[in-house]
């Protein structure tokens, strides 16, 4: 009971020294193999080939790289908007139906979530390639005469990325919708509001925390998305992530890769810093 005697100590808490010992392994692991590699990138960006900001000048001064950066932001924004528009109705239905129906929807949302991104990107290739299912079907029913080029287009990357990120948006919104007490809808209805008025004045405003959280999360993940654009995108749909990958393993221009990474990292950190509070990582939705 000596701990309890400590002035001001939380009687049920660990001492600072014990706390430190407990957290030390995690911190050591992260500092060595996570922080060090990331600072290594920063180091590369200003020291390769020699100490200067030349890599940043190259990255930010180039029309091509700026175009890729803008495309990445634009594509991420579109994916986010699409995920919101497609995801909200599902979350709404999920929060309203009960029992078995809810389970069915949950399974439909979770199965893709638990399926590897690679498998899902592959599935899109199976569907969309020249001799893929979509082209075959369209040819067979005579809508088209020659196979369409569906892969390696921006729209395809967008749809496939939305497909991957949609479950996250749905679960984020659903987590909040679920917590809205049912009697609020009943009260609105009793007070004279029809279905749409109830949604507009009560459900929608109360679901906004989930919307914000979903939007920020999807946007941030989309910014750094690699696998899907790398497999489904072509040269004209190059994104920041695929560009960074190329510079790292193909061009071996680690200085530029470092600068581009730092720019992407800074963009993400800026967003998290500005809006991070809406992420609700501790919330019930998680």
């Amino acid at each position: 009971m000596a701990v309890i005697a400590n002035a001001g100590a939380n009687p049920k808490g660990f001492s600072p020294r014990l706390s430190l010992v407990l957290i030390a392994p995690a911190m050591a692991l992260l500092v060595l193999f996570f922080v060090l590699p990331l600072t290594g990138l920063l180091d590369q960006s200003v020291r390769s080939p020699d100490l200067s900001i030349a890599n940043y000048v190259r990255a930010l001064g180039s029309d091509l790289y700026m175009k890729i950066l803008l495309r990445t932001v634009w594509l991420s924004a579109m994916v986010t908007a699409l995920a919101l528009v497609l995801g909200y109705p599902v979350a709404l239905t999920m929060s309203r139906v009960s029992g078995r129906m809810q389970l069915v929807i949950a399974v439909c949302v979770l199965v893709p979530l638990w399926t590897s991104v690679l498998v899902r990107s592959y599935a899109w290739i199976v569907l969309l390639q020249r001799r893929g299912i979509v082209n075959d079907t369209l040819l067979q029913i005579g809508v088209i005469d020659a196979p369409l080029r569906l892969l390696y287009r921006e729209g395809t990357v967008m749809v496939a990325m939305t497909h991957v990120l949609l479950p996250f948006m749905i679960l984020s919104i659903y987590g909040v919708l679920r917590s809205i007490p049912r009697d609020l809808s009943m009260a609105a209805s009793n007070l004279g509001a029809g279905g749409f008025a109830t949604f507009r004045h009560v459900i929608w405003p109360l679901s906004l925390p989930g919307v914000y959280s979903g939007v920020l999360m999807v946007f941030i993940i989309a910014l750094g998305f690699y696998i899907t654009p790398a497999l489904l995108g072509g040269p004209e749909t190059l994104m920041m992530s695929t560009l960074i990958g190329q510079q790292t393993t193909e061009t071996l221009d680690w200085g530029l890769a470092g600068a581009l990474s730092v720019i992407l990292l800074a963009l993400t950190l800026l967003l998290v810093g500005l809006f991070g509070r809406v992420l609700r990582l501790e919330g019930k939705g998680i």
């Binding site: 193999f33 996570f34 060090l36 590699p37 990331l38 290594g40 990138l41 590369q44 941030i220 910014l223 750094g224 998305f225 690699y226 920041m240 992530s241 960074i244 990958g245 790292t248 393993t249 680690w254 890769a257 470092g258 990474s261 992407l264 990292l265 993400t268 950190l269 998290v272 992420l279």
Partner: peptide, 15 residues
């Protein structure tokens, strides 16, 4: 939260 591509490239160079 950080972009996985950045983490991946950072680790690649360090590793």
């Amino acid at each position: 939260i950080l972009p996985h591509i950045v983490v991946a490239v950072g680790m690649y160079i360090a590793f």
